[in-house]
Amino acid sequence: MTMKKIALAFTALLSLFAFINHSGGIYKTNTGNISFYSYTPVKDIRASNHKVKTAFSSESGQLQFSCLIKDFEFKNALMQEHFNENYMESTTYPKATFDGFITSVSAIDFNKDGTYTSEVTGKLKIKDVSKKVSTTGTFFVTGGIVNAKATFNVNPYDYNVKIPKMIAPKISESIEIIVDSDYTSNNK
């Protein structure tokens, strides 16, 4: 009788752990990628950041990003210098952040491999200016790793990025931002 009770308690405990493990949690990475592209007939500009800190809750759908502006790397050193000093003023405004939600998070089964899409909406903060952005995110679930990809466009003038008239033709008013991150649960 006592053995039965112990076995029952043990099974209940295991089920509880399994439930906690499968009922979702926080998925995170500190090595996410964000790239941006500016296409104009005069010049194409691109830069990438591979140290993006990002996390989401598979229960509430809350999704957040934080990245350092100075961590964006350009192929051209002078362009990187101008981007930081003249346009982004990245010593004064060092971070860009996003705080929002995966709106259909309940439709994503994080325990089942597959490809899912959901609208992602939230506030993008650059140079202390917050603006609402929304896009469609694609979530690829493979063996517990969630790869999320999303693309959206921003206008630099919306975020108080001042571009001199002489340079303006070289910089697009619609900068394409591409997010690509691999999330794992319980990532430190």
């Binding site: 140290k51 800190k53 957040q64 934080s66 990245c67 350092l68 100075k70 961590d71 990245s90 060092p94 971070k95 952040t97 705080d99």
Partner: peptide
Amino acid sequence: GINGDDEL
């Protein structure tokens, strides 16, 4: 710089 945000 330092990445991470108390508000997030």
